[in-house]
Amino acid sequence: MVLTRDFKETVKERTARDPAFAKAMLDEAATAFLNGEPHIARLILRDLVNASVGFEALAAQTNRPSKSLHRMLSEKGNPSMDNLAAIFGAVRERLGVSIVAHAVELA
């Protein structure tokens, strides 16, 4: 008897039943990018794409090849800002959320 579950399946099921979880993942990916942790952001975004939009649908929506999108969102990926904007836009649209950045003043 298997006692563990595949992480991707767990994320996919949780995303499907809990929209707040999916939105939190998107927020976490955006925050990681803005905080200078692009490698973490790409991996979170990859898991979110797998769980929500799917790479084939993302490829159709962004007019980019699926294989290229997989590479962009890999640990060593290097997507351009245009590609990131397209990916975030497609996921944001799928989840029905907006992304708003807030500046924080340091004392």
Rank of each mutant, 00 (worst) to 15 (best):
I87W: 03
V97N: 00
K76S: 13
F88N: 06
M72D: 15
K76Y: 12
P79F: 05
N63R: 11
G89R: 00
N83Y: 07
G96E: 07
M81Y: 06
D82I: 00
L69R: 10
A86P: 03
R64L: 12
P79S: 02
S98I: 00
R64C: 13
S98A: 09
K76V: 05
K67S: 15
G89S: 01
D82T: 11
G96C: 06
V91P: 04
G89A: 01
P79Y: 01
M72L: 12
L69T: 13
N63T: 13
M81Q: 08
R94D: 08
N83K: 08
V100I: 10
M81P: 00
G96F: 06
A86F: 01
F88S: 03
V97S: 09
S80F: 01
E93V: 02
E75D: 13
L73K: 02
V97Y: 09
R94M: 00
A85R: 13
L95C: 03
E75M: 08
G89C: 00
H70Y: 12
F88W: 05
N78R: 14
M81K: 00
K67Q: 15
S80Y: 00
P79H: 00
S66P: 10
L69I: 11
S66L: 12
H70T: 05
P79M: 05
M81V: 14
N83G: 07
L69A: 13
S66D: 11
V100A: 06
R92D: 04
A85M: 10
N63L: 12
V97W: 06
M81E: 04
L95N: 09
G96Y: 01
E75Y: 10
R71S: 14
P65V: 15
A90Y: 04
L95A: 07
V97D: 04
L84V: 02
S66R: 15
R94S: 03
M81D: 10
K76N: 12
G77H: 01
S68N: 15
M81R: 02
S68K: 12
L84Y: 05
R64G: 14
F88M: 02
R94W: 02
A90H: 07
R71T: 13
D82W: 00
N83F: 07
V100F: 10
I99Q: 06
M72F: 14
A86Q: 08
N63A: 13
G77Y: 03
S80T: 11
G77M: 05
N63I: 03
A85S: 11
I87F: 01
S68F: 12
E75H: 09
R92Y: 00
S98Y: 06
R64D: 11
V100T: 10
G96T: 03
G96P: 05
L73N: 04
A90S: 06
P79L: 03
A85F: 08
F88A: 06
H70D: 14
L95P: 08
N83M: 05
E93H: 09
R71N: 14
R71W: 07
R64P: 02
V91L: 01
G89P: 07
P65L: 15
R92E: 08
D82E: 06
G77R: 01
P79C: 02
G96D: 05
M72Q: 14
P79E: 07
G89F: 03
L84E: 03
A90L: 00
S74F: 06
S66I: 09
S98G: 12
S66F: 13
N78I: 14
E75T: 09
